[in-house]
Amino acid sequence: MSEASRIGDTLLEVKNISLSFGGVKALTDISFDIKEGEVRAIIGPNGAGKSSMLNVISGFYHPQEGEVWFRGEKRGALKPYQVARQGVARTFQNIALFKGMSTLDNLMTGRITQMKTNMFWQAIWKGPAEREEIEHRERVEHIIDFLGIQAIRKTPVGRLPYGMQKRVELGRALAAEAKLLLLDEPMAGMNMEEKEDMSRFILDVNDEFGTTITLIEHDIGVVMDLSDRVVVLDYGCKLADGTPDIVRNDQAVIDAYLGVSHD
């Protein structure tokens, strides 16, 4: 595999991020970068600040200190939907789909940031809005095909098994055609087979669409196999950063995961 050609320049960089909620310091002086086309993992024990970091990147939290640079430009304090428009999509740790809506409709919501026609045309429906919807539907159908979820196209999401819902959520994030895809524990609560499927999809997304992926995951085996580089957080601080091999052999990481004896 041609690693070098797949991974490009820096896509997103966080510089000296510190985030606190009142007196609780969630993140302290964290810096790392995400390169275009890579699979980047954020790992760490519970409460390490992984999800907070992801929320900073997705624009949901605004750090008290530090800067987020996206595609070479410093990002101001944007609303999450503005960040989404810039090309950052995410999935959630707890599935956040519209349970009563079908798979297809859920995926279509992923296209909202791309829809251009205004409310007036949407209300009239015939004409530009209809043409636009057909276009979006076609994109969504490609994603359905890609994820192999044709059989559940019309099934309400709430009736699907957990692993399938996770897949639909990935599909919705894909529908947004993001440059950067943030996956918050995409494999939590899955069995072995579902994990294998999901890993396959993550690699395929990265490979086929060239999407940059940042993921949080607890299954270290999966993380080490999937990602190009791993950043390790612990108690809101950066512990290590580098290729899976480097991280795996880092004493500080081993201590954080396995604990150190207090003698």
Binding site: L104, R137, E138, E141, H142, I144, D145, Q150, R153
Partner: peptide
């Protein structure tokens, strides 16, 4: 006259 069809991309 249609000879063969396949459902693909929902159509």
């Amino acid at each position: 006259k249609a000879a063969i069809r396949e459902k693909d991309f929902g159509i």
